[in-house]
Design a protein around this nucleic acid. Structure first.
Lengths: 191, 191
DNA sequence: TGATTCATTGAATATTCATTCAATAATTTA
DNA sequence: TAAATTATTGAATGAATATTCAATGAATCA
């Protein structure tokens, strides 16, 4: 029999998960507290017993996303292209194993991009990896010949935005499988 | 000197454009009528003189998107891969020339995906091209050897989602240029 | 010009929704 | 077991926001 503390923790997780699903499928602003409460079979009053506001709930999810999606970039590779291959493979593997992470990934992306995001929450969301970190790797790859020619930020951006677009779809519907990592890596690979 | 009718039409366009920008940068739900009114220097009352509701405004934008983003798929190509190359090139060209279309593109995507979209609006948005139309072309290309092996819907999806992710970014920031069409076509191209 | 229609305003109203609260039930503690 | 603490409810409150409206000014018409 679970202790009260455990129960409370579980309940909190349930709320977070329900909110995450709704925030991803409808957007933060369009999600009503009653939607969340309904999904976890709970009165609105009780929900506020667990989280002091809708915004705090959002903030907590974004914090979770910050931890959960901090991909390890540290490691040495023979070639720049190996980094992209490894990175993408790992990411897709991770998302397939834990679709909840795909949802968190999308939540983070929206929190970063949307101008409706409360400033202090956006600041948290911005701390995750962005295209900037890919730029030097693209440059390295161009020097050694494994990455295609072109403006490094534009290449990095194309790669990262593609990943984001793919995640956005996968987060709400895992019926269509993620692509092979190589297909996406081919965006940056020199032919 | 413009006639009153012309003035009215121009004003209506201004409102539509301001709403489009806001809907894309903050999302439909988070955009307030006062935000839109402010952006076009107009009282809220007057805005309602032009559009009977926020939802009707949204609906009209989605209708515009339906017309504006109906890409011509009809045409004959020697190879399936040529279709993808042509399609992507044309799309990027179009979006570069008229960034407003990139915004409309993203609005449509969100209207289709979000569960917060009013049903009758979603029905309109759904009429645009989706991955389904790429599937037979992928199959054709696999038979003739120009498209890579793999589940056709998964390949189509990867391609289309990448395009969407790229547009999503470009719609709000044209400072980072769109990639070369070929880079994205390489997602589906057989090596 | 005088009458009529259209444009415009912003305060008033209505609606939707987050948040609070007082009351009750369940659980834990001593 | 009795007191204290925690969980739970849903109706009441309040804030934010969409929508209406009565009044005024500007443009058009006859």
């Amino acid at each position: 029999m679970p202790t009260r503390k455990e129960q409370k923790e579980k309940r909190k997780q349930d709320i977070l998960y329900a909110a995450l699903e709704l925030f991803v499928s409808k957007g933060y602003a369009a999600t009503k507290i009653t939607d969340i409460a309904k999904r976890v079979n709970m009165s609105v009053g009780l929900l506020f017993h667990y989280f002091e506001s809708k915004e705090k709930l959002y903030e907590e999810l974004v914090r979770m996303g910050l931890e959960g999606t901090a991909y390890p970039v540290e490691q040495s590779y023979d070639h720049a292209i190996d980094f992209f291959a490894q990175f993408t493979t790992q990411l897709f593997l991770y998302m397939r194993q834990q679709p909840v992470m795909a949802k968190l990934f999308v939540l983070m992306a929206e929190a970063q991009r949307s101008e409706a995001t409360p400033e202090h929450i956006r600041e948290i969301a911005i701390q995750v990896n962005t295209i900037e970190q890919f730029v030097p790797i693209v440059q390295w790859g161009q020097r050694e010949g494994t990455i295609r020619e072109g403006d490094p930020p534009v290449i990095s951006n194309a790669f990262w935005c593609s990943i984001q677009g793919i995640m956005e779809q996968y987060a709400t519907n895992q019926a269509i499988d993620l692509p092979e990592a190589d297909w996406i890596v081919d965006i940056v690979r020199r032919r």
